[in-house]
Simulated scan of single mutants.
Amino acid sequence: MPFSALGLPPSLIQALAEQKYSEPYPIQKEAIPAILKRRDILGIAQTGSGKTASYVLPILQNLQGNTASKNRHVKVLVLVPTRELAAQVREVFYVFGTNLPQKIKSLAVYGGVSINPQMMALQGVNVLVATPGRLIELVESNAVHLSEIDTLVLDEADKMLNLGFKEEMQKIFAMLPKKRQNLLFSATLSEDLEGLKQLVLRDPVVIKIEEEKNNIDLISQLGYFVSEEKKGPLLRYLIKHNAMKQVLVFTSSSYKADNVADKLRKNGIDASAMHGKKSQEARTEALSRFKKGTLRVLVTTDLLSRGIDIKFLPHVINYELPRSPKDYIHRIGRTGRAESPGDAFSFITPEDQHHFKIIQKKMGKWVTMIDSEGLDLQGI
């Protein structure tokens, strides 16, 4: 099925062709026609399934001929949990809106940077992509008004609830007009999310896209039994021995991410940490360098992985395991995308072994294990 069969206009079809989109993903086939008809949506789909374009494209079309409003009264609000995801979603609006007859102005706002430039940039904005805390600050400063919102999008709603945004989101809901289109996208459907569904959605079209098992099958997984003190040498060994040029390393905390990146740099491996305690400028620069391939190793946490979307990332390393099996699958799913193979390595200490068995059972795939004692890690 081509995109033209979904009801999109020639200008958006042209933008899709320029971005090398040949045919719609499953969620796009179902969501785009429903959103064009102004239906509410509950979309359950994993990151990397094409869900951002599934709402961006029809929203841009629905705004054509419907953008006139008072200044600072935005028409579309997209709420996201992280700064990186806000910037990424706004970029999708910008790229696909380039050829539209009626120009749409979009803006991403988030904390961690000065609020004044964002307040000034809100002039004439139609689509606002925001993290909840910064949005509330802007509303309280009268820099933006939500009384004319036509469409509300909650992206990564599962993460937003888990991260403790529920109270802020309810405060935002109270500011919105009751009559609006609501689009909720999530990787999972938890009990908390069911409650939110009742609060926000009206007779929604429910779209549930099962995670493609082939994605995991494209990923070559290896686990290494290793003691805590030998994780550093093992990491350097794998990067050097396998001549890795672009590696995403996951840790469980900001402190550990900094520590791992520092040790890599001291051993001659170009690395940078990206986490919530870094300045926005530092995070943006690190991610930009990593995507361009000029930064060899990016060390990050689960939270910030939501903004890392690289089609052909070859290597992922779990320096520390995540608590959730779903987060493990999300991590390794950063590689093995777009039908390209990838490698995922996991470091398993004696304390991790039981948890890793649970992860493998939930994943439905057993990982080949190697004892790092058999590797020559001296002088690495």
Score class of each variant (00 low, 15 high):
residue 67 T to D: 00
residue 2 P to C: 12
residue 143 A to L: 08
residue 201 L to E: 00
residue 128 L to I: 08
residue 165 F to I: 05
residue 25 Y to Q: 02
residue 191 E to G: 01
residue 267 N to G: 11
residue 31 A to C: 13
residue 171 K to Y: 10
residue 3 F to Q: 09
residue 188 T to V: 08
residue 1 M to T: 15
residue 342 G to R: 07
residue 371 D to N: 15
residue 230 K to A: 10
residue 9 P to C: 14
residue 156 E to T: 04
residue 56 V to K: 06
residue 159 K to C: 00
residue 289 R to K: 13
residue 36 L to S: 09
residue 327 D to A: 15
residue 276 G to E: 02
residue 262 D to E: 14
residue 201 L to I: 00
residue 229 E to C: 05
residue 245 K to L: 14
residue 250 F to W: 06
residue 278 K to G: 09
residue 246 Q to H: 10
residue 192 D to Y: 06
residue 36 L to C: 04
residue 333 G to Q: 06
residue 134 R to I: 13
residue 240 K to P: 01
residue 296 R to P: 11
residue 296 R to H: 13
residue 239 I to M: 08
residue 205 V to E: 14
residue 154 L to G: 00
residue 125 V to E: 03
residue 361 K to G: 00
residue 94 Y to T: 15
residue 334 R to E: 03
residue 28 Q to T: 07
residue 329 I to G: 02
residue 212 E to I: 13
residue 186 S to T: 06
residue 339 E to T: 11
residue 235 L to H: 04
residue 152 L to Y: 01
residue 330 H to T: 10
residue 266 K to M: 12
residue 263 K to W: 12
residue 226 V to K: 03
residue 370 I to Y: 00
residue 128 L to G: 03
residue 326 K to S: 15
residue 71 N to A: 03
residue 256 K to I: 14
residue 321 L to G: 00
residue 259 N to A: 11
residue 365 K to V: 13
residue 76 V to R: 03
residue 89 V to W: 08
residue 309 D to S: 07
residue 358 I to K: 15
residue 120 M to T: 10
residue 37 K to M: 03
residue 204 P to G: 01
residue 138 L to D: 05
residue 9 P to S: 11
residue 343 D to G: 01
residue 165 F to Y: 12
residue 61 Q to G: 04
residue 288 S to M: 03
residue 155 D to G: 02
residue 207 I to W: 07
residue 120 M to C: 03
residue 361 K to Q: 14
residue 233 P to S: 07
residue 107 L to W: 09
residue 118 Q to K: 03
residue 323 R to A: 15
residue 295 L to N: 02
residue 234 L to H: 06
residue 89 V to G: 00
residue 19 Q to V: 06
residue 60 L to D: 12
residue 33 P to T: 03
residue 357 K to Y: 12
residue 250 F to K: 04
residue 132 P to A: 08
residue 183 L to V: 05
residue 57 L to M: 10
residue 13 I to V: 15
residue 310 I to R: 12
residue 58 P to V: 11
residue 121 A to L: 11
residue 232 G to F: 14
residue 375 L to A: 01
residue 373 E to W: 07
residue 38 R to A: 14
residue 35 I to C: 11
residue 219 I to G: 07
residue 175 M to A: 00
residue 65 G to T: 14
residue 58 P to T: 09
residue 19 Q to R: 12
residue 343 D to H: 13
residue 167 E to N: 09
residue 366 W to D: 15
residue 133 G to C: 02
residue 167 E to I: 09
residue 204 P to Q: 01
residue 96 F to V: 15
residue 130 A to D: 12
residue 342 G to W: 04
residue 106 S to H: 10
residue 112 G to P: 02
residue 58 P to G: 10
residue 221 Q to R: 08
residue 255 Y to T: 10
residue 25 Y to I: 07
residue 364 G to K: 13
residue 345 F to K: 06
residue 70 K to P: 07
residue 78 V to M: 01
residue 323 R to W: 08
residue 259 N to T: 12
residue 194 E to H: 11
residue 119 M to C: 10
residue 158 D to W: 05
residue 9 P to I: 14
residue 128 L to D: 06
residue 131 T to W: 12
residue 143 A to G: 05
residue 106 S to F: 11
residue 204 P to T: 01
residue 359 I to V: 13
residue 40 D to Y: 03
residue 307 G to W: 09
residue 227 S to Q: 11
residue 191 E to D: 13
residue 247 V to C: 13
residue 82 T to Y: 02
residue 338 A to H: 05
residue 56 V to I: 12
residue 83 R to A: 06
residue 155 D to R: 01
residue 60 L to Y: 00
residue 298 L to D: 02
residue 329 I to W: 02
